[in-house]
Amino acid sequence: DGCIQFTRHAGDVLLNFNRLRSRNILMDVTIQIDGQRFCAHRAVLVACSGLFYSIFTDPLKSNLSAISLDPTVDPDGFAILLDFMYTSTLTLKDSLVLVTMNTASYLQMEHVVDTCRRFIKSREQS
């Protein structure tokens, strides 16, 4: 007895989720930040963010289809993190890395916060 491990399965699944997003298929929540709207899949948000996990596992909020985030959240930072959730690639521009880190902290994405912090420190040292 044994098993076959498909080593690229996780990436193939995430790529398909990103294709669903780009074609607006099965999107079940709109995130509003200061007038900007972002459509997404609740399942992906919950899988990647502690904040969304808390929101969508709360029986009183689990069926919300529109969520307004604190207006102090930066939409550009959120857009970078939403792309990260669907691609595993985190865009790091010098001008936005601090905003990205602060938004990741707000979304309770601690590993991304740590990575941004290390990136900032390395840039300061170089």
Binding site: D1, G2, I4, T7, R8, D12, R19, S22
Partner: peptide
């Protein structure tokens, strides 16, 4: 699944959703 008679399949595992229909 590491170790016990594990065969690693490097190829695609599922269908690819097209960019548009």
């Amino acid at each position: 699944y590491e170790g016990v008679n594990t065969i690693k399949e490097m190829g695609r595992s599922i269908h690819e959703i097209p960019r548009q229909e």
